[in-house]
């Protein structure tokens, strides 16, 4: 079977995979990084969102072997030893989650959103940019508030 090497959350990793092994399977099953969730497995819900070379993508629709040499960041890569990432802190502060299943994807998308659209995000922009992430609990209001606050907080971080 082929091997694949990439950088995940700053660490060089490699593993033996099948052609069909998805990036999300590699992250969860080979590396034990189970913060990245599989919700729908049909690339609609966004729970599996990670950053691939700095861009948000759905890791359930990317082959692990396509990521040879890539730089991957997962939800586990955001916080430092004892300090949450400002976007994580904002989700906690603004109660941007209920069951929490979609949260890793929401936060990875939110951080991507700041990269793409800047720190000063209005509600309309946030809702449009979150189209790839589905939450079945919250009704999104608190998520939108959390993203807005997190984006602003990232300016100072």
């Amino acid at each position: 079977m082929p091997t694949v090497s990439m950088t995940v959350n700053g660490k060089a990793v490699s593993g033996t995979v099948e052609g069909r092994t998805l990036l999300v399977q590699f992250l969860r099953e080979h590396l034990g990084l189970t913060g990245t969730h599989v919700g729908c497995d049909t690339s609609q819900c966004g729970c599996c969102t990670i950053h691939l070379n700095g861009k948000g993508v759905k890791s359930c629709a990317v082959l692990a072997l396509s990521c040879e040499g890539a730089n991957i960041v997962t939800i586990e890569g955001l916080a430092t030893a004892d300090k949450l990432h400002p976007m994580q802190e904002a989700f906690r502060e603004h109660h941007g989650l209920q069951c929490g299943f979609c949260t890793p994807g929401m936060i990875m998308s939110a951080v991507e959103m700041v990269r793409a659209k800047g720190h000063d995000l209005d509600e309309k922009t946030i809702r449009k940019q979150l189209e790839g992430n589905i939450c079945r609990c919250t009704g999104y209001h608190n998520i939108v508030r959390a993203v807005q606050a997190g984006a602003a907080a990232m300016k100072g971080a």
Partner: peptide, 9 residues
């Protein structure tokens, strides 16, 4: 097209 995550890929 699609959503931001799909557009990135």
């Amino acid at each position: 097209i699609g959503d931001p995550l799909v557009r990135n890929r």
